[in-house]
Design a protein around this nucleic acid. Sequence first.
DNA 1: GGTCCTTTTGGTCGTTCTGCCTAAAAACAG
DNA 2: CTGTTTTTAGGCAGAACGACCAAAAGGACC
Lengths: 224, 224
Amino acid sequence: MWTARNSEGYEAPAALAVDTVLLTARAGDLLVLATQIDDGHRALPGGLVGAGESPEDTARRKLAEKTGVTDVYVEQLAAFANPGRDPRGWIPSIAHLALVPPDTKPRDPDAAWITARGRHRWAFDHHDIVRTALNRVEGKLWWSNVAVGILPASFPLSKARTVYEAIAHTHYDPATFARDLKATGLIEPTGETSAQGPGRPAALYRFTTRDPSWGAGRRKRMAT
Amino acid sequence: MWTARNSEGYEAPAALAVDTVLLTARAGDLLVLATQIDDGHRALPGGLVGAGESPEDTARRKLAEKTGVTDVYVEQLAAFANPGRDPRGWIPSIAHLALVPPDTKPRDPDAAWITARGRHRWAFDHHDIVRTALNRVEGKLWWSNVAVGILPASFPLSKARTVYEAIAHTHYDPATFARDLKATGLIEPTGETSAQGPGRPAALYRFTTRDPSWGAGRRKRMAT
DNA sequence: GGTCCTTTTGGTCGTTCTGCCTAAAAACAG
DNA sequence: CTGTTTTTAGGCAGAACGACCAAAAGGACC
């Protein structure tokens, strides 16, 4: 059982942790990176925040260790600090949300992509963290450029639609989706076209900005 | 300079803090409770989380000390844990958002209501925390029953409109506001009417639920 | 080349939502 | 009783939304 005391003699947190919900979308499914724990439970990738380090930096550092990916979309989710959440001691965790392209391979042999909405036996309060992450990314989908984290620099609208459908967990009409996403002003055509497979070649688009920023998008009612 | 070490010998946070953005709306203005610090800066009410205490409980305990109010709407905002945010040492803070009715009086003589959107000289990173709180409450306004925290159990639509206008920082047409708020399903008529002052007496409404819950409301696009 | 199939994409149509407006209902002041 | 004020119901035009249709533009196969 970890404990700590500060220089005033009062009890202090034993450590400050970070847990990251790393999401991606593949074949219409939303996936989350999870490591396997000895007792069969799943756990989110995370680690301890070092002195002089910001929690977001910790999240990025740990993600780089687990997947080798750098330049990831990372944002803070919430703090999970209820007493007893970690059996090792008083260890608050600052949960983060991160998104990566679907071709990202885990470097850690114990880590694997599992369905984000499937029922899994999560360790600690990680089930709550995952649920919070899903709510967050769903809510932001049409109001921001979160999908930037999953999509490559240049993409056809059908690819974007697959990602949006995986996140929103619904089905969009292709024509309507194209009209609405273009209307948000979040994307712009690159001028290029791609033609792999049958069918008319699709025009490629890019996000007008790859910097994550709230409130950039517009409209689109919530799914009923 | 506060420091702490855990039982493994590694450096740990010196303490875990809570800062609360306590908001209310009065006369069309959004107000925040701030205490005055020696050097003239403003600071948010807050305190240290005790061992075995949840941060939200800490926020409620501190608010009760400062204002005497219990049964407050409190939700977690975000963690502010950048190194150097607190000159006293490594002290992450979990910021909270709280809402109270406008007749709440501060008990602490150093605490006072100040305009939430005014330019003030905030201490530490409290300016960021206030801004985050304003964004949060604005975003949730039409999608949840956050306004429950400010409005009394029973209220006329004009009162609700004043609160909504203070939060959204816009002006709503009275007729349109009534139509739209009723359409959200968040409120229901009590059957009573109130007639103070001139004009047709207003029907009184209550929230269908006073439990804070995300996603209960519907529609209403973002303000352009 | 010709035919069929596939996917993209522009447009239409009816429904719903939104912002603005008008006017009636229902109180108070003089 | 007459004017004033506030609430509240309803109308109307424009925008947004969802579903659909059809043309465009490629590949696959004969």
